[in-house]
């Protein structure tokens, strides 16, 4: 039996459960509930001002979270890369361990802290500063996203900084660069692929998340992920929710595709055995 036929079971599986559904989503996005005819109604619905506002809000929060992750994560990665190997290994592992806790538990943890009766408010009351509404705000959602995705930013940057050949730095110093110049002219530029990787790994999930916004943001306002979930599960198939949801998903896929394309453009050539479409 030819070896390539080994892949047939999976090929069939993929076709049925991955490719066909994606095509279906496309179809649902562009067909009407009633008659199944081609229509742009769903897309129009998906592009209506209310949903667009949600999209914008999602993008806004995603950008804010990503930027915060970058400004916190890069220094962490940088400091770690400068430490002796053992300490760096232990510390980097410490930053990763929380990831092994369940994603929802990590998000829930912040509910404890930000709640009206939560820790922060306890403190404020004790200091006689009165309670502050922290839960169900956009701020809470940002905190949740940063908390969950910070390690995604740290790791790729740390990796690439670690791999940076010491000779490049020594060469720069040899040629007369100060520490700051070494950083701005050598270290940072060479670390950009890691930065791009980190940004991608944070930005895309933060646009599409819905658990974090639901738990920490309440039903007050929706993010794009909530919209999709809502259409599919709450509105439901019978009421055309699947068509609108598909349209929304389609728009999201386009967005993600654009992001990946931009990221790929900046990142020509992965040095490790990675696959990035």
């Amino acid at each position: 039996m030819k070896r390539k036929y080994f892949a047939i079971p999976y090929a069939v599986w993929m076709l049925v459960l991955i490719i066909a559904p994606m095509i279906l989503i496309m179809m649902y996005a562009f067909t009407g509930q009633a008659d199944g005819a081609f229509t742009l109604d769903n897309i129009k619905e998906a592009l209506n001002p209310v949903y667009m506002k949600v999209l914008l809000r999602s993008l806004e929060l995603a950008v804010i979270s990503t930027v915060i992750c970058l400004f916190l994560g890069y220094p962490i990665a940088y400091f770690l890369s400068r430490m002796p190997a053992r300490r760096a290994a232990i510390l980097s592992m410490l930053f990763i361990v929380p990831m092994w806790m369940n994603f929802l538990l990590r998000t829930y943890a912040w509910m404890n802290i930000l709640d009206t009766n939560g820790l922060i408010n306890q403190l404020l009351v004790a200091l006689d500063l009165g309670r502050v509404k922290l839960m169900n705000t956009q701020g809470a959602v940002v905190v949740g996203m940063v908390y969950n995705y910070l390690p995604f930013m740290i790791l790729p940057i740390y990796n690439i900084l670690q791999k940076m050949p010491k000779e490049s730095i020594e060469a720069a110093q040899d040629l007369g660069s100060t520490d700051r110049q070494v950083f701005t002219k050598v270290v940072f530029p060479l670390s950009i692929p890691g930065v791009i990787s980190g940004i991608t790994m944070v930005f895309i999930p933060t646009i599409t998340t819905f658990a974090i916004s639901r738990l920490l943001g309440g039903s007050q306002f929706m993010l794009y992920g909530d919209l999709i979930e809502n259409q599919f599960l709450s509105v439901g198939q019978a009421n055309g929710g699947w068509h609108v949801g598909a349209a929304l998903s389609f728009i999201m896929m386009v967005l993600v595709f654009i992001c990946m394309a931009i990221a790929n453009h900046f990142d020509k050539g992965e040095e490790n055995g990675g696959t990035m479409i």
Binding site: I18, M22, L24, I25, Y28, T208, I228, Q237, M253, T275
Partner: peptide
Amino acid sequence: WRNAMMYCSNIPVINPDIVTGVSLMFAFSL
């Protein structure tokens, strides 16, 4: 063929969870 297969195989890896989740829901229901 190899590239084509790998491209398809990586779709669930690249796609946001929500899209994968939704498309599976579609497939299951149909």
